[in-house]
Design a protein around this nucleic acid. Sequence first.
RNA 1: GCGGGAUUGGCCGAGAGGCUUAGGCGCGUGUCUGUGGCACACGAAACAGGAGUUCAAUUCUCCUAUCCCGCCCCA
Length: 463
Amino acid sequence: MSTQPKPSNPLKAVRGTRDLLPPETALWNRIEQTARQVFSRYGFGEIRTPIFEATELFARGVGEETDIVSKEMYSWEDRARAQSEKAQSLTLRPENTAGVVRAYIEHKLGETGDLQKLYYIGPQFRRERPQRGRYRQFWQIGVEVLGPVSSGSESPVRDAEVLEMLATLLDELGVKNWRLELNSVGSTEDRKRYDAALRAALAPVKAQMCEDNQRRAETNPLRVLDSKEPADQEIINALPKIADFLDDSSREHFAAVRAALDACGVPYTVNPRLVRGLDYYTRTTFEFTVPSSSDPASGLGTQNALLGGGRYDGLSEMLGGPKAPGIGFAIGEDRLVLTLQAQAEAAAKAADESSAGAPGLASQTWVQIPKLDAYIAPMGAERNAAALALARELRRAGLSVEVGDGTFRLKKSFEAADKVARHIVILGEDELATNTATVKTFATGEQVKVARGQLGELLRAKG
RNA sequence: GCGGGAUUGGCCGAGAGGCUUAGGCGCGUGUCUGUGGCACACGAAACAGGAGUUCAAUUCUCCUAUCCCGCCCCA
């Protein structure tokens, strides 16, 4: 029974991380490109913050008691720079809002008086049990809108604008069947009063609930609202509602957000049980979901939340900065990819029920990878140099070109060419002697011999 | 962190305590020295890792790893 100490395999991506390869990366690029385009139409600029920060930032910003901070962070003691200094605890960012707000404070962006509209795209790190749609290194596309009160950062217009933008982005990406769930958790004080009321209401009925909920009732009563335990639903539904604990300003704010969404025609559902895990959320909280496990058109299992976000009016001050109300969200890019792939797959299956062809490119990318304009086939190794020179010419003219190898037999060149390109350009003895090239078009089978100078133009004309 | 399922070539996917680990896709070579896509022939390539039971293990058991499902939680 000699069990070996685990042989960590250096030739394997570590648990919870993965490589993204072509052609799948084309899908990622398309998503990111679409997001950038949409964001810029709303006046957002990109921010890039470090991938690691002082541990303290997350402890204070995200909340000491959250799961993220208490058990999911990748932290380490950095080496002290000098004898006199002590090592600093650093952490791979588990989310990006704290970093953005830190940058806002550090660069005194509040002093400009302007409303800051920022977006980021990048990897985040949490040490959780990997699952479908949950990785230890995962990607988020996020947005933060914040600024001094005088910039209008507190306005419900900002909430509604962000939500409307998300609806537009998901539509432009082609995400089907998304749902917006919306709630208000009120101000910090509202939440405090609600928490007390919940505890009071739970005290007499707690014992009838499942183990998890009994524990939550003690540690974090808000989380009881999240419970999916069927047996406890009756009790949960009878619990006090956060809506009844909102002060006037929170109530008006929420009503204004909904009115603006209605005016824009963005559909949503108010979900009074939507509470989010991070400490800094105030007032508006929201989630966009897609149909989950039971529906094959979701690529996600129980992780049916595509993105989440909310308002964080007190975060800057929690971190020691000026008052800077804000609202933001983070899209789980990995989940977005999974969803789009699953929906593309489902659509393809529905489109041709009959052909039981192998799951093609659609399942991986749903993005069409265009074929190259030309494949240059040199005849004989001594034509290789000339082929590369020709490729350079064409590429500089903006055409996409692959170059074969003169040692390939013509048959092999044709096979290789047909796979990646629309045309094959044959470069043999004749062609070089007469300064021409032979071009064959795969789609039509037609073949012509043209002067070198006209080759680019011809390829462009044939498309 | 807890519970359950899975792991066979590059990919998909059969299989049984001992006989040669099917088949398909893909790949390579040839028929075929400048006109391919087809066809035919041939070829390379796998039982996740470790221990145990057994005359014999890829098959049974255990451990480890990884993925998937659920819980927790979140994107």
